[in-house]
Amino acid sequence: MRQELTLRGNHALLTRANPLSKFAAVVFITLALALSIDWVSASVALALVLALLPLAGLRPGLLWLRGWPLITAAALGGWSTTILAPDSGRILLDARIWSISDGSLELGVGFMVRGLAIALPAVLLMSCTDPTDLADALAQNAKLPHRFVLGTLAAMRLVGLMAEEWHTIGMARRARGVGSHGNPLQRLRATLGQSFGLLVQAVRRASRLAVTMEARGFGDAPRTWARKSTFSALDVWVVLGGLLIAGSAVAASLAAGTWNMVFLARQ
């Protein structure tokens, strides 16, 4: 509900585009970045995506609040790749159990930047898209089944409750003596168990809400729409923008000679 009120007060350009056009733009960017693991294409795509923040009405601080788990995961993934990748080129650091070379560092930086470049467009999409508008577009334009659409809408509406659910599950587990003591490995296992419990609870709640909405007539056909989901000239520019970002990233990588196809990376 808080996200919906924020979006209603947000009059940025991208909030007025059809959700499906924004989704198509994100898919184009993701496909381009999934083909290569070099740092040039990822850096170009990341810089262009960050330049779009004002068009979505987002500030860097708000982007961090909404995407910090993905940003942290990308940083950890880049570090793991750096120390675990095979050495190639000059050795920069040798800690006996692991080492960092020119090749492994370049691979790790490319992995981290690529992870950010893939994750941030999705965060940008969800930050400037109203859940009801997305459900209308999926049902009216994409012609998806009502149960899937209602399940998606219910899940997005319930995202705001996940923090509260996490706190509740944690209190219940600590009341049983789980996760409140032990060594770091035991605490990590307890956190993973709590995360799985949160996932199960979210799926159950969304499924129950979707079935309830369908039972009350939300899924009957034919039906009318309070808001018509349409496409405009803005959506054409949004899709072209996604293609431009993807094409610019690939072109910059090819021009720099750093293009490294995923399935040829070991060669």
Results as ranks from 00 to 15, higher is better:
L84I: 05
G170I: 00
S21F: 00
T212K: 14
N260L: 09
L93M: 13
H11G: 06
W79G: 04
A95K: 11
D220R: 10
A32V: 07
L240G: 01
H167Q: 14
A246L: 10
R157E: 08
P19Y: 08
E164N: 13
L35A: 15
H146D: 15
L31S: 05
Q186E: 14
N10D: 01
L153H: 11
F28M: 09
G151S: 15
N183T: 10
G257S: 04
W64T: 05
G177W: 08
L185D: 04
S248P: 00
G103C: 10
D87G: 13
I91V: 14
S36A: 10
V262G: 03
Q267G: 13
A119F: 06
L240Q: 00
A142D: 05
A17K: 05
W68L: 08
G108R: 08
I169W: 07
V203L: 15
L5R: 04
V238G: 04
G61V: 10
G170V: 02
L20G: 07
T168H: 10
I29F: 05
N18F: 01
Q267M: 06
H11F: 12
L185H: 12
S43F: 08
L116Y: 10
H11K: 09
G197H: 09
F148D: 03
H181L: 04
C128T: 11
G77W: 02
S248E: 02
G108K: 08
L105N: 06
L31E: 00
G89N: 12
H146M: 15
V239N: 01
L93R: 09
I118L: 14
L53N: 14
S207A: 15
A221Q: 09
T81H: 00
S43P: 05
S88Q: 11
I71T: 14
A45P: 12
P19S: 12
L199I: 15
L198W: 13
L161V: 11
A24C: 13
A221I: 03
D38Y: 05
D220N: 06
R2C: 00
V238D: 05
G257L: 04
A51E: 13
G217W: 05
A221W: 00
G115A: 12
R96T: 14
L234T: 01
F196W: 13
I169M: 11
